[in-house]
Design a protein around this nucleic acid. Structure first.
Length: 271
DNA sequence: CATAGCACCTGAGGGC
DNA sequence: TGCCCTCAGGTGCTAT
């Protein structure tokens, strides 16, 4: 569910509210996430101060005052929200982190595909297995072109979704980005031109900025750090619009499956 | 080695 | 109404 814009929205919202706060209690109600919560997860967080809140790709990174980092990945259905501490446990509230001011961070995840871990700062890169952040200035047209040469046999859709190369894009935003760039999802990476690479980079920045400005896309599960809905779903040009008219040329949009993920594009506007 | 396919888990929605 | 099937924003393991 959450891709870069959703995670960025959560981080921007929660950052000012929780940085500097002390963790007073950690309650683990369900440790069986995709990767079982470490035995000492609660112990490593309790008594720690939350020094900084940041994001890399789809990971929320919370720096602790002991040099370690609390990693939060929301998987498909994860929610990471801050409440006043009075919330009674809802279904799928797996972890509750109480802060010194009485408020509480809740990790809720219906499908349990997410991940929570506390790791040494040096291990963050390895643990997240994440490439250059999609919003980083280091993700240039040249860098994307080079990556496309390295992965020539795969499709542009699969390349953009590969977190080891570019961190942050998921199924919704790759569909949207490729539409804006005028490139078909199944295009072989080896056939991407330098000009198109530039268009893809511009599209990534345009789409992500627009989505962040709207607080992300709330299709079904996503809420921000304060349980609020995003509204970028109303701006989607192609995602989940198979058969509906292209908003640019009016031709019916195509729906298909690429690398096992539902894919939407305009035959006329994308080549 | 790089890539494609499926499994993981729960709930919502459509068809009958 | 209720049952059954399909599908969902992600990713890691496995087979090719």
């Amino acid at each position: 569910m959450p891709e870069l814009p959703e995670v960025e929205t959560i981080v921007r919202g929660l950052g000012p509210a929780i940085t500097g706060r002390l963790v007073t209690e950690v309650v683990v109600r369900e440790s069986r996430l995709r990767e079982r919560l470490a035995e000492d997860f609660a112990a490593r967080l309790t008594g720690r101060r939350l020094v900084d809140l940041r994001r890399h790709g789809k990971f929320i990174l919370i720096d602790l005052d002991d040099g370690r980092v609390w990693l939060v990945h929301l998987g498909m259905s994860g929610r990471f929200t801050l409440g006043d501490g009075s919330r009674s446990a809802l279904p799928h509230d797996h972890v509750v982190v109480r802060l010194e001011d009485g408020r509480a961070l809740t990790y809720n995840d219906t499908r349990r595909f997410g991940r929570l871990a506390v790791v040494p700062r040096e291990a963050v890169g390895v643990e997240t297995v994440a490439g250059v952040d999609a919003l980083s200035d280091d993700l240039t047209a040249e860098a994307l072109y080079a990556a496309a040469r390295r992965h020539g046999r795969t499709t542009m859709k699969a390349l953009l979704m590969d977190q080891r190369e570019i961190a942050g894009l998921g199924n919704i935003y790759v569909n949207e980005v490729l539409f804006h760039a005028g490139v078909r999802p199944r295009r072989r990476a080896s056939r991407l031109t330098r000009t198109e690479s530039g268009r893809v980079i511009a599209a990534i920045r345009l789409v992500l900025a627009g989505a962040i400005a709207r607080g992300g896309s709330s299709i079904s599960d996503y809420r921000d750090g304060f349980e609020r809905f995003g509204s970028y779903q109303f701006e989607h040009q192609v995602y989940d619009r198979a058969g509906e008219p292209c908003l640019r040329c009016g031709e019916p949009l195509r729906g298909c499956v690429v690398t096992g993920r539902s894919t939407f594009y305009c035959v006329h506007c994308q080549r």
